[in-house]
Design a protein around this nucleic acid. Structure first.
Length: 458
RNA sequence: GUGGUUGUAGUUCAGUUGGUUAGAACGCCUGAUUGUGGUUCAGGAGGUCGUGGGUUCGAGUCCCAUCUUCCACCCCA
């Protein structure tokens, strides 16, 4: 008859235990965002497909979840539409899709509200997004993005502030085993230029990005296939071999890229970002200039950065960069933006693996009232409201079940105190307060119970 | 999208070359204990073996399809 229920592929439930931890992460990040002057924004789960399509490349378009039009959506189609195939049919039966990321809806919002927004506009947004991807571990069809962006200025102060926020957030988690890699698209373009790979820039980057995954030799093999000559590969080898601290590396790179104007610009931007960060009072030793960083280059145009844990096997937990002309596709030119995205799921896994979640205090009720019979239940309702009025989270077992059951409930739910209410207690207005951990118990008036618990909390 | 992998009780897993009534641990329920949880002891419930076909006298076991899980690529958070 009834089938076992199931979840769509690549989606998850978050149980209470997980939600406490997720909320802890989200609340912490939110507080830091707000401390830096970012304001909250939410956009709908669905957008018109005209907003979404064409923004993420051909592959991205295929990963969009499309929503069928309401009603008899086939009535507006012709047999010819079917014959022409999916591409022709889809626009006629689907006008909306689930959002794929937070950046494009944000750009849409900025354009629609350009007259009311005070620029530079700093917003943060924490919402689920959907991708019709093939799920794997740490990769889902529904997942949360946690973004903060600044639009309407190209000041490199913004980059520094975002990097400062990264460090503040992880400090709040007491998590220190990470490193921030930074680079600049312009540096990469400069490297590609002096290596004669300017025409094949994006493929050049994709290959370069695999460096720590497949090793230098294979990367060089692939680059040779791409058409780089020996001289170019030698130059690249020199660049990759640069060592020393960030300043030394950037200085050395400057001379190696002296033929590339854009490369020089990228180096200058990187320097300024690092300067700004240290002026903000942050150590830059967590920040590592890495010329091979080549993520998200389809949209980033300036500084790019990526955060990874150093002591455990885990992918990128935070990433971001600058994208010029964010709103250009929606007809508003000349608005530059820079943003950062925290990967909540991976941060969760990291904190879990390193055992960094704080011991949960008072996550559940502080006290459970256990009543012996119906009369005690009624009597307990008044006690319950007194406890709650005093700010103590308390609950009453909703039926006068056997004590074993009620106490077992408190035990499993981790409720530290139990208040027993029976005929004896009601007669004297002295209630039995039991401390579950030790099993000790004593009699108190309700006022003393409240007093006791409030002292305990402080 | 390409290639591989997984699925047996609420959970983690056994289950012989295809052969009676599919097991264990933990969890759950009941009792020992009608005013006291965790520990202990006794008992109990719980499975269309992912789903649908097929081969066979006979399928958890073999074959096909499909869904799901995980992994590698592509890409990405």
């Amino acid at each position: 008859m009834s089938k076992k229920p199931s979840l769509p592929k690549g989606t998850r439930d978050f149980g209470p235990e997980q939600m406490f931890k997720r909320n802890f992460i989200i609340e912490t990040i939110k507080k830091v965002f707000e401390k830096y002057g970012f304001m909250p924004l939410e956009t709908p789960a669905m957008e018109n497909l005209s907003v979404l399509t064409g923004k993420y490349g051909d592959e991205g378009d295929q990963l969009l979840f499309r929503i069928l039009n309401s009603g008899d959506f086939l009535s507006k189609t012709q047999p010819a539409d079917f014959e022409e195939g999916t591409k022709s049919l889809v626009p006629k039966i689907s006008e909306k899709g689930l959002k794929y990321d937070l950046t494009v809806p944000f750009a849409r919002y900025v354009v629609m509200n350009r007259n009311d927004i005070t620029f530079p506009f700093k917003r943060y947004q924490i919402q689920p997004v959907w991708r019709a991807d093939k799920p794997q571990k740490g990769r889902y069809r529904e997942f949360f993005q946690c973004d903060a962006d600044i639009v309407g200025t190209d000041s490199l102060v913004c980059e520094a502030e975002l990097l400062a926020m990264v460090q503040e957030v992880y400090k709040c988690f007491a998590f220190d085993a990470y490193s921030i890699s930074i680079s600049n698209r312009k540096i990469l373009e400069g490297i590609a230029e002096v290596c004669g790979a300017k025409e094949e820039f994006s493929r050049f980057c994709v290959i370069l990005d695999k460096l720590d995954k497949i090793g230098k030799e294979k990367v060089f093999d692939e680059l040779a296939l791409l058409g780089l000559n020996k001289q170019s590969l030698h130059r690249l080898d020199q660049i990759l071999a640069l060592s020393g601290n960030n300043v030394e590396k950037l200085d050395a790179l400057l001379s190696l890229l002296n033929e590339s104007e854009i490369g020089q610009k990228g180096i200058a931007e990187t320097r300024e970002t690092l300067d700004n960060l240290s002026l903000l009072g942050f150590l830059t030793d967590k920040v590592l200039v890495d010329f091979t960083l080549a993520r998200g280059l389809s949209y980033y145009t300036g500084m790019i950065y990526e955060v990874k844990p150093t002591t455990i096997k885990m992918g990128t937990i935070t990433a971001g960069g600058r994208y010029d002309n964010l709103t250009g596709v929606f007809g508003l030119e000349g608005i530059s933006g820079v943003g950062i995205s925290f990967g909540i799921d991976r941060i969760y896994d990291t904190l879990e693996e390193l055992n960094l979640f704080p011991q949960a205090k008072a996550r559940y009720s502080k006290l459970l009232i256990v009543s012996f019979d119906d009369a005690a239940q009624k009597h307990s309702l008044n006690l319950l409201s007194k406890l709650r009025a005093a700010g103590i989270s308390a609950e009453l077992y909703p039926e006068p079940a056997k004590l074993k059951k009620q106490l077992g409930y408190a035990d499993k739910k981790g409720i530290p105190y139990v208040l027993l209410v029976g005929s004896e207690e009601m007669k004297n207005l002295q209630y039995t307060l039991k401390y579950m951990e030790t099993g000790n118990q004593d009699s108190f008036s309700i006022e003393d119970v409240i007093k006791h618990l409030l002292e305990e909390t402080n």
